[in-house]
């Protein structure tokens, strides 16, 4: 797990902490319930949303490796594929940026509606709270009334303070400002800010995010801009990610609904094509079904027997 820095509430010292450990392996459904056939591999990967190009490439490389090493055993192939995927998925920058010594940390959460943005914020807040962090949530999605109610439920569960818009349609930047202000007053460790899901075009999105960022910078620093994507959307998630990445400085991706029917190959495609790390994954409907993205756990799940 990644070491994070937090301010000790009593001694005021900055100390290293770890969050409660979680693994995603069991939630990932195997791609190969039956024996791995190299000839079928490409199609299986395509069906798992890896995308045509990546599927072709991985299959090619695995065939090469298999030829070199000469393993024919199914179990050996599984290990080979696991290691290949792990290697390709591993990045230096996949830890959350919770290392600076400027508090509070501020996370902006972006993404279209319906991908699980609010749930993501709730789960993240709960997880951090469970780890002894003091969390404030800012409901800057002032457009969707239901979003605030939903966040409120999650904030209660997480024991986090929710900063709400005072009026419907209040300027999101001002809500963000108030949330950071609240965090400073409460001496909280982290502020998570929800943003509106649907904006007409790139310019609107950019303008709004810039404005929010400026309002945050009056009192703190933005440490992460997390983009939430739905794994069931397949290659479409990729184009969504691309649009957001062009408009905002996305620092990490949260991939939701990675359990169940979606096979998550899109995780691979996103990292390869956009060069943005996947930092967190949602793997179920339970409030604790949320973890750091671990390439090894993920690959292990994909090739499990």
């Amino acid at each position: 797990m990644f070491p994070f820095l937090r301010r000790n509430r009593k001694s005021e010292q900055v100390e290293q902490v770890e969050l409660p450990t979680r693994s995603i392996t069991s939630a990932i459904r195997s791609l190969f319930p039956k024996k791995i056939e190299l000839d079928d591999l490409e199609e299986i990967l395509i069906r798992a949303d890896f995308g045509a190009q990546a599927s072709e490439q991985i299959t090619g490389e695995l065939k090469q490796l298999a030829k070199h090493l000469g393993p024919t055993e199914d179990s050996a192939l599984r290990v080979l594929l696991r290691d290949l995927l792990t290697e390709k998925l591993t990045r230096e920058d996949s830890a959350l940026n919770l290392k600076g010594e400027s508090f509070p940390y501020v996370f902006l959460v972006v993404g279209v509606n319906g991908v699980g943005k609010t749930t993501t914020i709730g789960k993240l807040a709960k997880w951090l709270s469970d780890g002894g962090w003091h969390v404030v949530i800012g409901a800057a999605d002032t457009f969707r009334a239901a979003a605030v109610d939903q966040l409120e439920t999650w904030a209660k569960r997480a024991g986090a303070k929710l900063v709400k818009p005072q009026t419907h349609g209040q300027d999101p930047a001002s809500v963000a400002y108030q949330a950071v202000e609240q965090a400073v007053t409460e001496r909280a460790d982290i502020v998570i800010i929800d943003t509106a899901g649907r904006l007409q075009n790139k310019k609107d999105l950019m303008d709004e995010l810039n404005k929010i960022t400026r309002s945050i910078q009056k009192q703190g620093l933005v440490s992460e801009v997390l983009l939430v994507l739905d794994a069931t959307m397949g290659q479409n998630a990729l184009s969504q990610a691309r649009a957001f990445a062009e408009a905002a400085d996305v620092t990490g991706i949260v991939l939701t609904k990675l359990d169940g029917s979606a096979k998550g190959g899109i995780a691979y495609a996103i990292q390869q094509q956009l060069n943005i790390p996947i930092k967190l994954v949602g793997v179920g409907e339970g409030q604790d079904d949320f973890a750091f993205f671990s390439p090894k756990d993920f690959a292990t799940g994909l090739v499990a027997n």
Partner: peptide
């Protein structure tokens, strides 16, 4: 917007 999952 569903991916390959749409089939299932």
């Amino acid at each position: 917007m569903l991916g390959q999952d749409a089939v299932g």
